[in-house]
Design a binder for these strands. Structure first.
Length: 754
DNA sequence: ACATTTCTTTCTACC
DNA sequence: AAAGAAATGT
C-alpha cells in the first residue's frame, strides 16, 4: 500500500480509521494534507466507497485543486465524480439542483459584496432608513453574520434583531425578496438556503445522507455555525465524518468561524475518536519553539506542543527599523540580495503582511531595487474594475433579469443616463414587476422619460438586443470583443489615458485582453460554471503566464497552508499586528485570534524567519509612531536574535549586529497605558499646518481636550484622558463610565461634547 | 447631465 | 496618499 509509505504511527492511524466520527488534531506542518489524500486513497482502493460517495470539503479552491492533483497522481487515475471542493461550491451544487424549492431558478446568480451593498442601498432607501446612520455595508455585515449563524429571517433572536436600530429584521426580509426577484443569492445564502432545503425536505436530505458514505473536512477550525449544521445533517447517515484541523490556526472569526466547533467535536459527534499529529516536518527547531511560545499564551486551546527532530537551524531574527521604507530598503532588500548572492532563489521567499495596505511601500521599494515580486491574491484579477465592467456587460446580455449589471454599465461610457433617469427606470421596473432592462424598453415605447434620455436608452437597448441575438454557438470571446467595441467601452479606456496616465491605461487594456483570452474556453454549456467560479474562486491569479522566479507577497490569511524557506513578517507593531480593531474588541477574543494569526504566519517559515517592526509608519497619509508588537514579549529567550538599526542604515548581514541588550530595550515594562501618549517622532506638513493654525495638542479649538466629558453612541458617557495626533486624524483616549478606557480615531468615534 | 472642485473617508483578514 | 462622495458650476 503505497499511500502508507513513510508515514508515522499517528498518521497511519488517521489514514486507516475509516469508520465513525474522527477528529484529527493536526498542528502546522504535521502532514495533514498528506493524511487527507492518503485517507481518500485508502477508502477508494479498499473499495469502501465509489467516487461519488466521498465528500471532501476544503477551505479554498486552490486546496481542492491541489488535493485532486495529488490524489490522481497517487492513484494514477482520474477522480472525476468525487464531491471535492469548498463549502460554497459543494453547497452551490446541491442548491442548484433544488433551487425551485427556495424560489430560485437553476441558473441563479451569486452576488459579490459589491452587489450585496448595491441591493442593500435600495432596500434602505425604500425603508426610509438614513444610509449615513446605518451604512449598506454595515447592514450587509449584520445579515451575513446572521446567515453564518444559520438564522433565517424568522429565526433571528430578539436581542440580535435589536442591533443597528432594530431595522435588521424587516431589512433582512426585503433583502431576500429582492435577491429572489433578481434570481440571485449571496455567499451566506449558498449555505443557509441549502440547509433550509434539507430541513424542509427530509427525503432530499436522506438521499444525500445515504450517498455520502465518507465525509472529510479540512481546516475544520474555521467552520462557522451554518457549515457545522450542514455537515452534521449530511453526516447523520453513515456517521463516517473525519475532520482535520488545528484550533491554533483558527483565523476567520470575523467570518463567523467558531473555534468551539473543533474544541467540542467529541461532544457534537457521539463516539468520536481523536488522533493528534504533533510531529512537525516543516520548520526548524528555533522557528517552532518561537511559534509555540507565542501561541501558548492563548487560553482557549487544546493543549499541545509541536516538536521536530530536524535540528535547531539559525536563530529567528527580530529587527527594529526606522520606518516602513527602511524596513524594505534597509532590511529586506539587503537580506534578499545576500540570499541571491549565495545562490538562493527568489521563489524561496515570501513576505507576509497583516494588512493589504502594507503592500504599497513594499512594492515600490522592491521595484526600485529591481527585485522581481508578485502580489498573491491581494487584488484578484476578477475584482479589477475594468474586468468587472466587462463581465457586467456579458451578464446583462446573457441574463435578462440582471438589474445589478444593467445599473453598472448603463452609463459606462457616458450615455447621458444619470441618476434621475435611472431612478425612473427602477420605479417602472418595480410597479410593473419587470427587469430594469425591460423597463427601459417600456420607457422608450411609452415616452416616459425626456427626449434625450429616450434616445440614449433606445440606442442602448438596441445594442443589447443585437448582442443577445448574437449569442454564439462557440466560445464567448468574440461576443465579448464585439460588446467592448460597440459599447464604446474600449474607446473610453483609451480616452481615460489623459486622466489616469498611460501606464494605468495599458494595464487596463491588458486586463481586458486577458479576460478575452480566458473567455475562449467559455461556451454556452459552461457559462454558468464560469460565472459561479468568478464569484467563488478568487485564487485564479496564476493565469498570467508561467510561475516566475520572484518573491511572493501576500496577506497572512492568504498564506495559510503554504510554506516557504524564508519568510519576512514586517509590521509587528501594536495597532497593526495585533490590529487595533482587535485590541479594541470588547469581548477580548480579538487579540487571541491575532495571536493565532501570528502563529500561522511564523509557522509558514521552513528555515529562516525574519520579523521586523518600525518606529514610525504612515497611516492615512500621516506619520504615526509605533510600539513593538506585544507578541515580542512572548518570544522565548533562546533561539531569537535582536537587531536595531538607525535611519537608512544597512545592516551588515554577514557580520550580524547581534545585540544582546536589544532585548531589554525592546521589552516594555508592561503594556503601555492607554492614557500614555505615544511620542510623536516626526511632523507631517499637515500637522505643521495644523499647529500654525492654532489648535495645540490637547487644547483644541473645538474644546475636545483632556478632561472634557463626552458621549459616544454605543459606549455611553465618559471623560477624555488624552489626545494624540492632530485634526483630522486625532485619536482620543476616553475613560468610559461603563466600558473603561478606549482609544479611538476622531473620524470614527463621532464623540459628542456634553 | 456632466465636469470640476472640494470635502470626507479609508486600512483588517475573504468564500 | 488615494479613492470616493458631495458640492458647485456650466
Amino acid at each position: 500500500m503505497q499511500y502508507l509509505e513513510g508515514t508515522n504511527p499517528p498518521q497511519r492511524q488517521a489514514i486507516t480509521t475509516t469508520e465513525g466520527p474522527l477528529l484529527v488534531l493536526a498542528g502546522a506542518g504535521t502532514g495533514k494534507t498528506r493524511v487527507l489524500i492518503s485517507r481518500i486513497a485508502h477508502i477508494l482502493t479498499q473499495n469502501l466507497a465509489e467516487l461519488d460517495e466521498v465528500l471532501a470539503v476544503t477551505f479554498t479552491n486552490k486546496a481542492a485543486r491541489e488535493m485532486q492533483e495529488r490524489l490522481e497522481a497517487e492513484l494514477e487515475s482520474s477522480v472525476k465524480g468525487m464531491w471535492m471542493g469548498t463549502f460554497h461550491s459543494l453547497s452551490g451544487r446541491i442548491l442548484r439542483e433544488h433551487a425551485q424549492l427556495v424560489g430560485l431558478d437553476k441558473d441563479f446568480d451569486i452576488v459579490d459584496p459589491d452587489g450585496q451593498a448595491s441591493v442593500m442601498r435600495d432596500i434602505l432607501l425604500a425603508h426610509g432608513i438614513d444610509e449615513k446612520q446605518y451604512t449598506p455595508k454595515q447592514m450587509v455585515g449584520l445579515l451575513s453574520a446572521w446567515k453564518d449563524n444559520s438564522w433565517l429571517p424568522e429565526e433571528v433572536p430578539a436581542e440580535e434583531a435589536m442591533k443597528l436600530g432594530g431595522h435588521g429584521h424587516s431589512v433582512y426580509r426585503s433583502y431576500q425578496e429582492r435577491l429572489k426577484q433578481l434570481n440571485a443569492c449571496d455567499f451566506g445564502d449558498m449555505m443557509l438556503l441549502t440547509l433550509k432545503i434539507f430541513k424542509e425536505n427530509p427525503e432530499i436530505l436522506q438521499q444525500y445522507q445515504q450517498q455520502f458514505k465518507y465525509i472529510l473536512v479540512d481546516e475544520y477550525q474555521d467552520t462557522n455555525g451554518v457549515q457545522y449544521l450542514w455537515l452534521r445533517l449530511l453526516a447523520m447517515g453513515h456517521k463516517n465524518i473525519c475532520v482535520v484541523g488545528d484550533d491554533d490556526q483558527s483565523i476567520y472569526g470575523w467570518r463567523g468561524a467558531q473555534v468551539g466547533n473543533i474544541l467540542a467535536f467529541e461532544e457534537h459527534f457521539e463516539g468520536a475518536q481523536t488522533i493528534r499529529l504533533e510531529q512537525n516536518y516543516r520548520c526548524t527547531g528555533n522557528i517552532l519553539h518561537a511559534a509555540n511560545a507565542v501561541i501558548s499564551h492563548n487560553e482557549q486551546r487544546h493543549a499541545k506542543e509541536l516538536w521536530t527532530d530536524s535540528g535547531q537551524g539559525v536563530p529567528v531574527e527580530v529587527h527594529q527599523r526606522w520606518d516602513d521604507v527602511d524596513e524594505v530598503r534597509g532590511l529586506m532588500v539587503t537580506v534578499i540580495n545576500h540570499h541571491l548572492k549565495m545562490g538562493g532563489s527568489l521563489k524561496d521567499i515570501a513576505v507576509l503582511v497583516r494588512s493589504a495596505s502594507q503592500t504599497r511601500v513594499l512594492e515600490a521599494e522592491l521595484r526600485k531595487a529591481k527585485i522581481p515580486h508578485r502580489l498573491v491574491k491581494i487584488l484578484a484579477f476578477h475584482d479589477r474594475k475594468e474586468v468587472k465592467d466587462a463581465i457586467a456587460y456579458l451578464k446583462l446580455v446573457t441574463r435578462p433579469r440582471d438589474d445589478l449589471s444593467f445599473e453598472r454599465v448603463i452609463n459606462l461610457p457616458k450615455r447621458g443616463i444619470g441618476d434621475s433617469t435611472l431612478k425612473q427606470l427602477k420605479q417602472i421596473s418595480q410597479t410593473r414587476n419587470m427587469p430594469v432592462f425591460d423597463a427601459a424598453v417600456v420607457a422608450v415605447n411609452e415616452n416616459l422619460v425626456n427626449t434625450k434620455a429616450k434616445k440614449a436608452l433606445y440606442e442602448f437597448t438596441q445594442l443589447v438586443n443585437g448582442w443577445r441575438s448574437d449569442i454564439p454557438n462557440g466560445s464567448y470571446d468574440q461576443l465579448m470583443e464585439m460588446i467592448l467595441d460597440e459599447s464604446g467601452y474600449v474607446d473610453m479606456l483609451y480616452e481615460d489615458k489623459a486622466k489616469e496616465g498611460e501606464e494605468k491605461m495599458k494595464e487596463r487594456i491588458d486586463n481586458v485582453k486577458e479576460l478575452l483570452r480566458e473567455l475562449t474556453d467559455v461556451t454556452q454549456e459552461n457559462l454558468l460554471d464560469y460565472f459561479e467560479n468568478l464569484a467563488l474562486d478568487s485564487d485564479t491569479i496564476d493565469l498570467l503566464g508561467i510561475p516566475q522566479d520572484e518573491v511572493s507577497i501576500m496577506t497572512v490569511h492568504a498564506s495559510k497552508g503554504l510554506e516557504f524557506p524564508m519568510v519576512f513578517l514586517p509590521g509587528f507593531e501594536d495597532g497593526l499586528f495585533p490590529h487595533q480593531r482587535s485590541i479594541d474588541d470588547e469581548l477580548g477574543t480579538g487579540v487571541e485570534e491575532e495571536r493565532r494569526l501570528a502563529y500561522v504566519a511564523m509557522t509558514r517559515a521552513k528555515k529562516k524567519l525574519i520579523i521586523s517592526h518600525t518606529s514610525s509608519r504612515k497611516l492615512y497619509g500621516n506619520w504615526i509612531s509605533c510600539e513593538p508588537s506585544r507578541f515580542f514579549l512572548e518570544l522565548p529567550e533562546k533561539g531569537v536574535r535582536y537587531y536595531k538599526e538607525g535611519r537608512g542604515s544597512e545592516i551588515n548581514y554577514i557580520k550580524e549586529g547581534h545585540n544582546p541588550t536589544g532585548r531589554t530595550e525592546l521589552k516594555r515594562k508592561g503594556p503601555r497605558k492607554m492614557g500614555e501618549a505615544a511620542p510623536q517622532t516626526q511632523l507631517s506638513d499637515a500637522q505643521v499646518d495644523a499647529l500654525n493654525k492654532g489648535p495645540m495638542i490637547g487644547v483644541s479649538a473645538d474644546g475636545m481636550s483632556t478632561g472634557t466629558k463626552v458621549m459616544h453612541e454605543k459606549l455611553g458617557t465618559g471623560r477624555i484622558l488624552g489626545v494624540e495626533g492632530f485634526p483630522p486624524n486625532r485619536k482620543f483616549i476616553v475613560d468610559f463610565d461603563e466600558h473603561g478606557e478606549k482609544k479611538m480615531l476622531e473620524s470614527m468615534a463621532n464623540l459628542q461634547k456634553i
